[in-house]
Amino acid sequence: MNIFRLAGDMTHLFSVLVLLLKIYATKSCSGISLKTQELYALVFLTRYLDLFTDFISVYNSVMKVVFISSSVAIVWCMRYHPLTRRTYDKDLDTFRHYILVGVSIILALLFHDRFTFREVFWAFSIYLEAVAILPQLVLLQRSGNVDNLTGQYVFFLGAYRAFYILNWIYRYFTENHYSRWISWLAGFVQTALYADFFYYYFVSWKNNAKLQLPA
């Protein structure tokens, strides 16, 4: 564990807490893409298959349980909870996210570390996470004004993977034979997808104005 990875995990955890706060405090999930939440639930379920088989550390297991349970809970909330489900922007959240799942499956079958059940599922989860934010970014552009908590949620979600890239650079220089091109490549694409969001987020923060994404 290094400081970059801890910062990344804490930023990721914080983004989940901000999202939960937004849904709980405003009793609304307007501006939140259910499709991105479903993709993230799938990412965690396919990546943490080893939750019950390999014990790495208490921290590792606790964080996996937190990420799986929070993402599933949010999907359930947005789909079935009588109050919040009505506030979901169903007609704006139209990204065909099953295409992202299909492409990730093909990529995982073609590019993986070892052709084993767990490794292919792990690669799938890495590729899927890289593009999981797309429905959310499209929804933000369509829904015009973005409420603060939603903007902060997306910001921290993007920042966590940037910390992970620093973590991979750090591990590359401190650990021998540490080359994980799948994580690096996907992590780079994932962070790059946030580039324009980060730009508009910074501009809105500098001008102390409402976050506005160009349509």
Partner: peptide
């Protein structure tokens, strides 16, 4: 040596 795989990451 213990494979320092990225799999010990979240």
């Amino acid at each position: 040596a213990k494979e320092s795989s990225v799999k010990d990451e979240l």
